[in-house]
Design a protein around this nucleic acid. Structure first.
Length: 91
DNA sequence: ATGATGATTGTTCCG
DNA sequence: CGGAACAATCATCAT
C-alpha cells in the first residue's frame, strides 16, 4: 500500500503550506478543456472528465512533453515559494 | 540512504 | 462553492 491516498478531506499541515506545483495533467487539461469540451458540446463532466484521462495517456510521451515540460517549470515555481516558507520558518 | 506519506494541482459539470 | 473522476507530482518527513 505504497499508494493509497484519500480523495477527499485533505487538510493542511504546514503553517504556510507552500503547496506544491501543478501536474502535467493540469497543463494538459488546460488544453483539453478547450478541445474536448469543444468537440463534445453538452457532455457532462462525468464523460469529459473520464474521457480526458483516457486521451491523456493516449497521446504519447511527445504529446505530453509540452505539459510535462510545463509541469517541470512549475515545480521551480514551487521551489521558490517553499524557499520563502522555509526561510521564514527559520527565525 | 531509503521508503512511505501526505498534501496539492487543475479541468469539467451540476444543484 | 464544493465535490468527484482523472492523472501526475514529488518535496518532505521519518527511520
Amino acid at each position: 500500500m505504497a499508494a493509497e491516498r484519500k480523495k477527499a478531506s485533505r487538510k493542511k499541515k504546514d503553517p504556510d503550506a507552500p503547496k506544491r506545483s501543478l501536474s502535467a495533467y493540469m497543463f494538459f487539461a488546460n488544453e483539453n478543456r478547450d478541445i474536448v469540451r469543444a468537440e463534445n458540446p453538452g457532455i457532462a463532466f462525468g464523460q469529459v472528465g473520464k474521457m480526458l484521462g483516457e486521451k491523456w495517456k493516449e497521446l504519447t510521451a511527445e504529446e505530453k512533453t509540452p505539459y510535462e515540460k510545463k509541469a517541470e517549470e512549475d515545480k521551480k515555481r514551487y521551489e521558490k515559494q517553499k524557499a520563502e516558507y522555509a526561510k521564514k520558518n527559520s527565525s
